[in-house]
Amino acid sequence: MPELPEVEVSRMGIAPHVTGQRVTDIVIRNPQLRWPVPEAIRQIVGQEIRRVSRRAKYLMLETDAGYAIVHLGMSGSLRVLPAGIPPEKHDHVDLCLASGEVLRYNDPRRFGAWLWQDKGGEHPVLAKLGPEPLSEAFCAQYLQEKARGKRTAIKQFIMDNHVVVGVGNIYANESLFSAGIHPKREAGKVSAKRLAVLVAEIKAVLAFAIEQGGTTLKDFKNADGKPGYFAQELQVYGKAGQPCPRCDKLLSEVKIGQRTTVYCSDCQK
């Protein structure tokens, strides 16, 4: 499943090819994704894409009339292709550009979305999201205030999009390991000093993942295959039963909020 770094890399990959381009048509082969593709999205035809932005794991194709919102779901991907390339089975949406290329959306599981928001409004899917993890708004003081009195496990707490967006399962595991915090510890019982360390580690882990993903940008304009999500340099995620990279004790695995959680019982307290 694409996490925030993969979505940001998708934004970086498609932006040079679609920004400044006029949309000549939108082809919707399957109107039923996670939610029905709204008819209003056809307002994008004739518009110039002014900017490609990201909020959490949503991509926005911004125009003077409003913006299309794209979510990659569990298995979605975007590719810029020549218009003559025939669509494949799971190619559900094409955004046709004046350049003669198309922005093609592929999604085998159809858990993604294409939505529309008229200019001047905010779509409900974006309305109650917490701050971006790499922004100045996500700081130690903010997290301390949000965590005060909370009995939720710290891992579930930082994965809550109302608290901070984009800290998915992989990056919650990695950040908590780097910060030395046990994933089951109650958020309200983590000291201010340790929460400050956690904020710094979340930022560092996500920034590094985005930097790693930059090497895949060439894949966003390639007719052969689909852009794979980049290889991660992970310390603990997916490595239960292997030696801890710090102390060599075997890493433990537990379910927290139905999500696989890997940690070191010696290094994380």
Score class of each variant (00 low, 15 high):
D107N: 07
L251G: 12
R50P: 04
V254H: 13
L61G: 04
R11Y: 06
H92M: 06
A223T: 14
K146Q: 15
A68L: 15
N173G: 09
P87H: 07
R194Y: 11
R50E: 13
G66H: 12
M1G: 12
S77P: 00
V164D: 08
I181Y: 06
K221I: 05
P243L: 14
S178K: 15
L129N: 06
E145Y: 00
A40F: 02
D248N: 13
G228T: 13
N173F: 11
I181M: 02
G66Y: 10
L143N: 05
E201V: 04
A207N: 11
C267N: 02
L78K: 03
W114T: 05
G149R: 02
L97I: 09
K189F: 13
V23I: 15
D94P: 11
A204D: 15
D248A: 15
R54P: 00
G100Q: 06
R109I: 10
G121V: 00
S265E: 14
G180N: 14
P31H: 03
P183N: 08
W35Q: 01
N169M: 08
Q242C: 08
G84C: 02
G112P: 03
G13K: 03
H17G: 00
V45M: 04
R109F: 06
L251P: 15
V27K: 08
A172S: 10
I181F: 07
V167L: 08
V7E: 03
L134E: 11
I14G: 09
Q235H: 15
R246Q: 12
R151A: 11
P108W: 06
R22T: 15
G76L: 03
T152D: 04
V199K: 08
Q242Y: 10
K221E: 12
V18S: 01
C267I: 09
P31T: 01
G130H: 01
V254R: 11
N169C: 08
D248Y: 08
Y67W: 09
P31I: 00
W114H: 09
A200G: 06
V254G: 00
T261C: 03
R29N: 11
V199C: 13
P227I: 04
P133S: 00
A192W: 05
E211Y: 02
A65T: 00
Y263K: 09
S191Y: 09
V80S: 06
R42G: 08
A192G: 15
P245I: 09
Y237I: 06
A147K: 02
K226Q: 13
F177N: 06
I256G: 11
E186R: 15
L97Q: 09
S135T: 04
L33F: 06
A196F: 01
F208M: 07
K221L: 01
P131K: 01
V23C: 08
K155G: 02
V236W: 08
Q21S: 02
